[in-house]
C-alpha cells in the first residue's frame, strides 16, 4: 500500500501576544490509500488543529506534511486552495451548504473552482448526488431537506472532485440516531469502494466503524491501533 498521508514531527504553536500555546507537540502519522481512520480525542486535545492541518486549511509551525506525494509545508494560500480543491473532500459537522442554492449547485461548487465546463459540472454533480441516494432531490434547497439528507449532499460535494482523501469532521454531531446510521453507512460504502477516509470524532461508537483509531491527547498521539470491531472491508 502506498502512503497517502505522511506527517513527520508536526508541531503547531499558536501565539496570542506573549502567550504561546502548543496545540500539537510532535505528531507522526502515516495513512495508506484506502484506509478508514478515526481520530478520537476530547475537546482541547489538538484534534481540530490536526484536522485543519490534514485538510490543508492550516500549515504546521514545524515538521512536514506530504499529501499524495506533495509536500504542503511550504505552499502559499493560493496553492493550498488548489490542493484542497483537487485532493481533499470535506464533510463538516454543520454541513456548510449554501442555503440559496439547490443541492445540485452546492455539489457543483468545487468543480467551478476546478474550472470545469458547465455541462461537465452538471453531469458529475448529478452523478455524485445519485451515488448518495439523492437523485430525486437535485433541485431542492438545503432548507427543504432533512438533516441526514443535507449531510448526504455534503458527502456528494466532498466526492465530486474524486479527491484522494475524504476528511469528515464530526459528520454525525448534528444528526439524530437514524440519520447518523444513514451517514455512517454511506461512509462504510465509500470505504468499501476504496476511498481513504479520515473521520474526526469524540464518540467511541462512531470511531468503532473505522478500521483504525488514533487517540490524540494534549497534542500527542497516545494510541494507534486497529479497531477490534472493524467492519468487513477494512483492508489496512
Amino acid at each position: 500500500m502506498s502512503a497517502i498521508i505522511e506527517l513527520g514531527g508536526v508541531r503547531k504553536t499558536y501565539r496570542s501576544g506573549a502567550v504561546e500555546f502548543e496545540a500539537l507537540r510532535g505528531i507522526d502519522i502515516r495513512i495508506d490509500t484506502g484506509e478508514y481512520v478515526a481520530v478520537i480525542g476530547p475537546s482541547g486535545s489538538g484534534k481540530s488543529t490536526l484536522m485543519n492541518i490534514l485538510g490543508c486549511l492550516d500549515v504546521p509551525t514545524e515538521g512536514h506534511y506530504v499529501l499524495a506525494g506533495e509536500d504542503t509545508s511550504s505552499l502559499d494560500e493560493a496553492e493550498l486552495a488548489a490542493i484542497r480543491n483537487r485532493r481533499i473532500g470535506f464533510v463538516f459537522q454543520q454541513f456548510h451548504l449554501l442555503p440559496s442554492m439547490s443541492a445540485l449547485r452546492n455539489v457543483e461548487l468545487p468543480l467551478i473552482y476546478a474550472g470545469l465546463s458547465r455541462a461537465d459540472r452538471r453531469e458529475r454533480a448529478a452523478e455524485a448526488l445519485a451515488k448518495v441516494g439523492l437523485a430525486e432531490r437535485l433541485d431542492h434547497r438545503p432548507g427543504e431537506l432533512s438533516g441526514g439528507q443535507q449531510q448526504r449532499v455534503a458527502v456528494a460535494r466532498a466526492l465530486v472532485t474524486e479527491p484522494a482523501l475524504l476528511l469528515a469532521d464530526e459528520p454525525t454531531g448534528n444528526l439524530d440516531s437514524r440519520s447518523t446510521r444513514d451517514v455512517l453507512g454511506l461512509l462504510d460504502e465509500l470505504h468499501d469502494a476504496g476511498r481513504t477516509i479520515v473521520l474526526i470524532t469524540h464518540e467511541q461508537d462512531v470511531a468503532a466503524r473505522a478500521g483504525r483509531s488514533l487517540v490524540i491527547d494534549d497534542g500527542l498521539i497516545t494510541s494507534d491501533r486497529a479497531t477490534a470491531a472493524a467492519p468487513a472491508g477494512a483492508t489496512s
Partner: peptide
Amino acid sequence: VREIGLRKALGAAPRV
C-alpha cells in the same frame, strides 16, 4: 463569513 470560509475550503484562492 461562513460562505467565504466554505468557498475557500472548497478551493477558492484569495484572489477568486
